[in-house]
């Protein structure tokens, strides 16, 4: 089997006699047997730590849960600074969690929650922060300040939590460079290894924002906005 790995500016081909291995096992094989300088990140080997997200033939996968095919092209994630080979610097990307104020406000009141209510954000809290959705999001090509799919899913996780009594902070935080900068193109959905649909969560945040009195700026400007002298 032949696979190509994008290593900095060049693409390097490897001929391997390996069958039925995960991509991570294959990369480990290359590193320990063929070329020790190959750089990639890994952790749990079981799809839960989010270390080994990369792109195969232009689609984001976790190396530990993907079985490579002959001719695959392996590349690092997009829109994050390349450190080396398949490793990118995720600091700035992860910083969007903070910008989105995606956290719970500690409450002293302990509530009983029905299994149904608990299910509301069960899927969103499955997120492993692997960055697959981030790399798949085309908005970053033109708008590097976009809060982006995983941070917005995280925001919705807390906003939708029935225990949260005050979500104004988080909702306010996702208005600028946030929910309205998403084009709803759906690219983030199929690449999520956890089956999360950030696009859907962004729509939910928009609805919630609407209920809380926020206005979609695109909508407002398409009608010339309120200050344009347009009168009913």
């Amino acid at each position: 089997m032949k696979i190509d790995i994008k290593r900095d500016e060049q693409t390097v081909s490897y001929e391997l006699a390996c069958e039925d291995l995960t991509l991570l096992e294959l990369l480990t094989h290359i590193k320990t047997e063929i070329d020790s300088s190959l750089a990639f990140s890994s952790g749990c080997r079981s799809g839960v730590c989010g270390s080994c997200a990369m792109r195969v033939n232009g689609k984001e996968v976790l190396a530990c849960t993907y079985k490579p095919q002959d001719g695959d092209l392996i590349e690092p994630l997009r829109y994050a600074p390349l450190l080396r080979d398949l490793v990118v610097d995720m600091d700035k990307a992860l910083g969007f969690n903070k910008i989105a104020k995606a956290w719970g406000l500690p409450t002293s009141k302990i509530l009983n929650i029905s299994p149904k209510d608990a299910e509301i954000n069960e899927l969103q809290s499955d997120c492993i922060l692997c960055g697959a959705c981030y790399s798949a999001c085309p908005v970053y090509a033109v708008n590097p300040g976009f809060i982006g799919p995983f941070a917005l899913t995280r925001a919705w996780r807390y906003v939708s939590d029935v225990r949260e009594t005050d979500v104004t902070q988080t909702i306010a935080a996702v208005q600028t460079k946030g929910i309205y900068d998403c084009t709803l193109c759906n690219e983030c959905v199929p690449v999520c290894p956890q089956g999360i649909a950030p696009k859907q969560d962004i729509v939910m945040l928009r609805n919630k924002s609407g209920v809380m009195g926020y206005m979609d700026p695109n909508f407002a400007s398409s009608f010339g906005g309120f200050d344009s002298g347009f009168t009913f």
Partner: peptide, 18 residues
């Protein structure tokens, strides 16, 4: 556990909500 609950840890729940 109460502290984790208070900061939004999404525990699975019983039918009584505990």
């Amino acid at each position: 556990i109460k502290w984790l609950d208070s900061i939004g840890m999404p525990f699975s729940r019983t039918t009584e909500g505990t």
